[in-house]
Design a protein around this nucleic acid. Structure first.
Lengths: 233, 233
DNA sequence: GCATTTATTCATCGGTTGATGATTAATCGC
DNA sequence: GCGATTAATCATCAACCGATGAATAAATGC
């Protein structure tokens, strides 16, 4: 019997002390939001859930990000900058090294490497983020717009390099080939566990090393088959 | 001034007359739900929106489908049966015709044809349904399970045919290759308008004829490159 | 050292959500 | 021809939703 309420420890109010262990609430909110949005999409998440997970009041989410949509956009943009920079650098550096011996597989590998490496490293926060990209990429209503705004510059850089490796390709074939690449990559990053079931456990969604070995050859094979074939009305 | 309410015509109550023009409410609900779910996903839709669109009371959705989730599953299953049957027949018939001259591109083409043909035909209801598949396929939480339950039998049939066309391929390579195929197909069917923007209008998400020409060669090129290469740790 | 700004929780609002029991009317089984 | 079943709307519920203004406390600027 004793005390009937374990004193729930009412959270402190007002601005926190400067050297208080572990705040940086803004990042904590973004992490929690990333986790939830990646699993259930924009509409499947309530700001209350996010706030509870980040151990802050819901009003703080509005303080930092104004609206729920603002929070979502902030989550999406945060890591995009990082991988965009890495991918540009990776393609630049491959093009410099390869010189005139540039190949489609080499370019695609340079493009995929930064993402797949991060995925293979196993940081769950990045996993969540990649799953989020996958959802956005397949969201009809506003996915195309969001993806374009965020990633198009890098994709144009990729296509420029591919044009060098496949000089006879038509523009249409290049863009469609990239589209197939994008779809394959997105699904691989979304980790739905589908291939696990399908292959009866032989392959695992989480095995990014296997993906890393196979994806560039597969996609390059596709590019070359499609872009080197001539005449298709 | 006159009458202050234009008589809103209260809907009739009770069971409708047998030969009443245009009922079949159940189908109407499924159509409306398909439309909404495909655009905004499970959580982005309220049963009220669906009911309003189908011009029925919300209680009727619960009468037929019990819960919101039940409605979603019914939508997802309805057209799956149709295309699954068509795909099986298409692969069967190709295998019979090709005999020992079976090729990866032929098999993949037989697998893709039924879907892409329907997509090219332009029925918006099928377009919506394909977009719905795309979303489910990239939903981490329950997408893998739902996709597996719905489509795995056909996919196993596909893989069996591919095994014949690529006798030296390892099981892992076959499954991963299918995974890439699945991703590419899904994104193509989801019509986000991304490629339109990316290509500055040169390519169009809705141009399923272009996809139909390009996808089988691209994917077959990938399969052959990956599955015919030897030794990869 | 005081006024302003920043970062946080509290309390609460109006609107929406999925669901359900009651009611009504037509059909079906016998 | 009548009781049971089916197909529909109506009315309403408790829970939850995103958002906001007020309160509070530390930090910062001058």
């Amino acid at each position: 019997m004793t005390v009937k309420r374990p004193a729930k420890r009412r959270a402190r109010r007002g601005r926190p002390l400067k050297n208080d262990a572990a705040p940086d609430m803004r990042e904590r909110i973004l992490d929690a939001a990333e986790d939830h949005f990646s699993r259930h999409g924009f509409w499947g998440v309530t700001i209350r859930e996010v706030a509870q997970d980040a151990k802050v009041d819901t009003a703080l989410l509005h303080y930092y990000f104004d609206t729920k949509r603002g929070l979502f956009d902030a989550v999406f943009a945060r890591r995009a900058e990082i991988i965009n920079r890495e991918r540009i650098e990776s393609i630049d550096s491959y093009e410099r090294e390869a010189g005139s011996a540039i190949t489609a597989e080499g370019v695609i590998n340079a493009f995929l490497q930064p993402i797949l490496e991060r995925a293979a490293q196993g940081d769950p926060r990045w996993h969540n983020y990649f799953a989020l990209i996958a959802q956005v990429n397949n969201t009809p209503a506003w996915g195309g717009e969001t993806m374009a705004r965020t990633f198009d510059p890098v994709i144009h850089r990729l296509i420029r390099a591919l044009r060098k490796a496949l000089p006879d390709a038509t523009e249409e074939d290049l863009y469609w080939s990239y589209h197939f690449l994008s779809g394959a990559l997105t699904l691989s990053l979304s980790q739905t566990g589908r291939i696990d079931r399908l292959s009866n456990g032989l392959c695992k969604s989480s095995d990014f090393e296997s993906i890393g070995h196979r994806m560039a050859p597969f996609i390059a094979g596709g590019f070359e088959r499609l872009c080197n074939s001539v005449s298709r009305a």
